[in-house]
Computed example of a mutant assay.
Amino acid sequence: MTSIRIFMMALIFSLVLVPIRIAHAQTEDPVVHAVLFFSPSCPHCHLVLNETITSLIDQYGDQLQIIAIDVTQPNGEALFLNALKKFDLEYGGVPLLVIGNTYLLGSLEIPTEFPSLIEAYLAQGGVDWPDISGLQEGLAAAGQAENSNTAPPSQTITEPTIPESAAISPAIPSPMPFPNLSLSAKPLPDPNWRDLFAQDLGGNTLSVIVLIGMVGAVLWSGRIIRQANRASLKDRWAWVIPILSIAGICVSAYLAYVETMQVEAVCGPVGDCNTVQHSEYARLFGVLPIGVLGLGGYIAIITTWLMARYMKKPMEDIAAWALLALTISGTIFSIYLTFLEPFVIGATCTWCLTSSVLITLLMLASMSSFNLNLSRISSDISRHRRH
């Protein structure tokens, strides 16, 4: 028998938990209690459950008690909303872990901060279940069911063993009072792209529209290159580049703030920005926040535009080519990130989409001066050969 029980508890209408025994330590060692909110179709929840939680099971044993609540179940969602209300959060995603008066959000924050919180609470003598409205009533109901001498004949009650994850079967219809729980030793299967897309249908549909537009813009840029007109970055129209860049700086600066300070993003009526910002793809190579990378990119773009506009040759031409390289590479990278949102992450960040549109427009604007820069280089090469 293992030293900890992880229960995937689907709460039924009356907020009654399944009557599975919650094992408490037989010693007087301090115990830390925590609640993890998850969704079966959330890949980041799978990562936290199958990797972080199982390793902590082996490390802390009976001193760690965790209840995992499926937010896709009606009353699981109700508890989740109560947890958000407890911390005055207008928005929230999963996985969300609540321990004491602290919450951790996402597959980056939970693995990095949860172990240190466990150590801190153990040093303080342990911590009880979080004060989430409805949770204590459910735990009390589960305790009463445990003390009952009989159980409905058709109800399956299994003695839990240490699982890498747990799966919940659908609740038994009325009049059965409890859901039918089964535990699996196999990891939860990863959701397919259809499940992920359906998690944020409105936002992900918008992502696909933007993605198609970006790919179309890249293809259209080839036509711009073949045009005979030779626009110059010194012309009045070129002021559109710093204007778009300043807008990009504002967007990326906000995203950098959200990612580095680990605060909740204001997303608006469409999309789920916080799920995106707490995903593993919010940092390049797991280190550099994408918002910080974007901020640096927009600053570089406006800098090269200033050089191309006000400096003399050869720096003028070098800066113009650097501007083109920055906007093309930024657009290609944004296409990759935009693809991840609906099909891999399962959520869309409207701030990220705004940045993607801005960098695409900057690419098209930079392309407008391509022929002029190319003709200058050709003239310089011909002049050099004559001499």
Rank of each mutant, 00 (worst) to 15 (best):
T2C: 08
T2I: 03
R5W: 00
F7Y: 10
M8Y: 07
M8W: 13
M9K: 06
A10H: 03
L11V: 15
L11M: 12
L11H: 08
F13Q: 14
S14R: 15
V16H: 14
V18A: 09
V18L: 03
A23M: 09
H24W: 00
A25N: 13
A25S: 12
A25T: 05
T27H: 01
A34Q: 06
S39V: 01
L47C: 07
L49Q: 13
E51C: 07
S55Y: 04
L56A: 11
D58R: 11
Q59R: 15
G61D: 11
G61L: 05
I69S: 03
N75R: 15
A78I: 08
L81F: 08
N82F: 04
L84H: 10
F87Y: 13
E90W: 03
G92F: 04
I99V: 15
G100Y: 06
L104F: 13
L105E: 11
G106F: 10
S107T: 12
I110Q: 10
P111N: 07
F114H: 12
P115H: 07
A120V: 09
Y121A: 03
L122M: 14
L122Y: 14
A123P: 00
G125M: 13
G125P: 03
G125R: 09
I132H: 12
E137M: 09
G143C: 08
S148H: 10
S148D: 07
N149F: 01
N149Q: 08
A151E: 09
P152L: 07
S154Y: 00
I157E: 02
P160R: 04
T161N: 08
P163L: 08
S165L: 00
A166M: 07
A171F: 00
M176Q: 12
S182Q: 13
S184R: 11
K186C: 02
P187D: 07
P187Y: 10
N192A: 03
R194K: 11
T205D: 02
L206R: 05
I212P: 03
M214Y: 01
V215S: 00
S221C: 10
S221M: 13
R223N: 15
R223L: 15
A228H: 08
R230D: 11
L233Y: 06
R236Q: 03
W237L: 11
W239G: 02
V240A: 12
L244K: 00
I246V: 15
Y254W: 14
A256P: 13
E264N: 05
G271T: 12
D272V: 09
D272M: 11
S279L: 14
A282I: 06
R283T: 07
F285P: 08
G286C: 07
G286T: 14
V287Q: 08
V287G: 02
L288K: 06
L288C: 09
G294H: 12
G296H: 01
G297P: 08
G297F: 03
G297M: 14
M307N: 02
M307W: 06
A308R: 05
Y310N: 06
M311N: 05
M315W: 11
D317V: 05
W321R: 14
A322P: 01
L324E: 02
S329D: 01
I332E: 00
F339R: 04
G346F: 06
C349F: 09
C349V: 10
W351F: 15
T354C: 06
S355I: 04
A365F: 03
A365Y: 02
S366W: 09
L372D: 13
N373T: 12
R376P: 03
S379E: 13
D380P: 00
I381H: 04
I381F: 01
R383P: 02
